[in-house]
């Protein structure tokens, strides 16, 4: 049994200790917004926050985060009102959309650590998130926009 708090809800999961957090989130908790893309921390589609810090859920044994607080895309905001989500909507970032949960979670982590990131900061923080549709330019612009929105 592993205890996890996902999006504020504490749950017990009867899973092996070494099961990746990603599959506990998707297949056990039934939260499918967090995506499987590579299984080896190459693409960032599985990015969640654990105790506020970004984490690639596909390479993290669930036992390593036992008792911690996990936030997935579904829990980033109650109504897509997080500045990153608002900026993403405003700049029409998504295409196929599969990578975007991870992109948004990474961008949110960046803004938390660095509220007014430069282009270089965005490169450093978001180059771990792949997008085959090529939405990078809009993501960059949307991160800047989200920084403005967050300032209010």
């Amino acid at each position: 049994m592993v205890s996890l708090t996902i999006n504020g809800k504490t749950q017990q999961f009867d899973v092996p200790d070494d099961m990746p957090l990603l599959w506990v989130i998707r297949d056990m908790a039934g939260l499918t917004g967090t995506k499987f893309g590579c299984g080896m921390a190459q693409c960032g589609a599985c990015t969640v926050h654990v105790d506020g810090a970004p984490l690639r859920a596909c390479v993290m044994p669930v036992s390593a985060v036992a008792g911690k607080s996990v936030t997935t895309i579904e829990g980033l905001s109650a109504d897509a009102s997080h500045p990153v989500q608002r900026a993403w909507a405003e700049l029409d970032v998504v295409q196929c959309g599969y990578c975007q949960s991870g992109q948004i979670m990474s961008a949110a982590a960046l803004l938390k650590a660095k509220p007014e990131p430069s282009d270089a900061d965005i490169d450093a923080a978001l180059s771990g998130n792949l997008c085959r549709c090529g939405t990078y330019q809009r993501i960059r612009a949307a991160v800047h926009r989200a920084a403005e929105l967050a300032k209010g």
């Binding site: 297949d27 039934g30 939260l31 499918t32 917004g33 967090t34 995506k35 499987f36 997935t72 895309i73 579904e74 980033l76 905001s77 897509a80 989500q85 993403w88 909507a89 029409d92 970032v93 998504v94 959309g97 599969y98 975007q100 949960s101 948004i104």
Partner: peptide, 21 residues
């Protein structure tokens, strides 16, 4: 025109084949 599928792709609601349960 902005994409009509954007909102559901911003909060994890959009269902891809992988998400069928």
């Amino acid at each position: 025109h902005k994409r009509l599928d954007s909102p559901e792709k911003l909060d994890g609601r959009a269902k891809f084949g992988m998400d069928v349960q």
